[in-house]
Design a protein around this nucleic acid. Sequence first.
RNA 1: GGGGCGUUCGUCUAGUGGUCUAGGACGUCGGCCUUUCACGCCGAAAACCAGCGGUUCGAAUCCGCUACGCCCUACCA
Length: 499
Amino acid sequence: MTDDIRVRMAPGPTGYFHIGRSRAAVLNWLFARHTGGKFVLRIEDTDQDRSREEFLHSILDSLRWLGIHWDEGPEAGGPYGPYFQMGRLDTYRDYADRLLATGHAYRCYCTPEELDALRREAEAERRPFRYPGTCRALTPEQQAAFEADGREAAIRLRVPDHGTTGWDDLILGQVTYANDEIGDFVIRRSNGIPLYNFTVTIDDLTMRITDVIRGQDHISNTPKQILIYQALGEPTPRFGHYPLIVSPEGKKIGARFGAKPVSGLALDGYLPEAVFNYIATLGVTYEGDREIFTRDELVRLFDIGRVSRSPAIFDPDKLDWMNGLYIRNLPPDEFVSRSLPFLEARGLISSPPTPSEIAYVKAALVLEQERVKTLAETVEAVEFFLQEDITYDPALLVPKKGTLADSVRVVDAAMDVTNSLSEWTVEALEAAFRALVDRLGLKTGVAFMTLRVAVTGRTYAPPLFDTMAVLGRERVMRRLGGAQVALQNWERAEPTAVQ
RNA sequence: GGGGCGUUCGUCUAGUGGUCUAGGACGUCGGCCUUUCACGCCGAAAACCAGCGGUUCGAAUCCGCUACGCCCUACCA
């Protein structure tokens, strides 16, 4: 029972669930699933000033989007609740009283102002500040005097003056701190609200957390928390501190870069499974040189000891590549259904789309599947299929290796072919147009480029005859007609171009 | 100022004393495929393994120092 692995993620609802936090979630979740343990979600909402409902939703939505299910926590419940710290105030008070009763903690009547003065003094003398232990050995009379004076007491943990506190980190190995560098720290404010290091410890203890896996920004909190476990006479969990993910500029995530919630990546057209794969493999190795894994493989192969000890830069280019890979591997139907919302949002199709729209757009999307890196790109990729009238630069109708006269001939002849073709299929189109280009004595590359521009309005598109097949005879005729007009106008406007 | 942690191609990394003239991936560049783009395939450039000094027959791998980076240093979380 006590051997069952339990890990947790304990975000404060004080900011969006950014990429850095997603790493915490992914690593803890993988660790839990790999070991057959439980993943607990706990909300640290004691910072009432900064906590916001909106951020709580951001956390929950992002976790769900990534497919990270929490076994216990908000909405899920569980045997060790409540999972919001504000609901656990009584527990913190009980444990604080216990520490007071055993003498491991004591009341401190120093005011913030007095401490500030000491701190400034220490700084001025370029000497590290540490609480001097002023209230460590107050007599009941002295305490009564302070109380009578109207002072509220904070509670401090009595930290040993000598010795060291350390642990064998799951990722970093042995880490040690000297106790005399820690100093008696406050575990409960004078207003009765407990402090972070105390609440996490009590929560982790009472929630029976066995492995605390968190970012390296928490390293220096760890000895304090271990000291609390020891004062309570409780065994400590294992600790593992992974390095932070930093922005491409090497800066901390959250400020300028990556300030958005991870679930926002959905709107940018990223697939959650690709993002999960990327986050899970950023700064972590699994098996050989591979870096593309299914979720099950990640769970099976995850090894906390294979987490790199140095910070990793978030590389948007690599995420894009990976997302494109996942898109290409999607079953076409799924690619289509996942892309439709983007087209709807842009008003390219009705919302909800009609069956005929779906059929048409599906055919177009399938042609673009291996050409996009994000679902959002499908909008631009498929736009020309849906626009009634395409507009383009007539100059593009004459490729660099072609002439205006040739372009005119191809488009004119294409009109006839299009009009008379008996069977509207990719094969028939290709056969007919190849024969046509042959008859005109033109180069296929050049002539096809003219037709491509005439039909799509751009120089890059899916293969010409696949595109025409999807567009249908009507649209192709109309666009070829538009190209004829454009060429005529251009001929008049740029007579020197005629050779 | 003090403390902790870190340091292999631009980026993510493999590497745990000899097999490393340092391997893979993204990105970049070139080629092939080809009706364009993309995909796919092939290839190239790219890290004197932060620097210095030790240990050793032999070091990216072990030790020390220095530099640089990040984090912490609150009655914030």
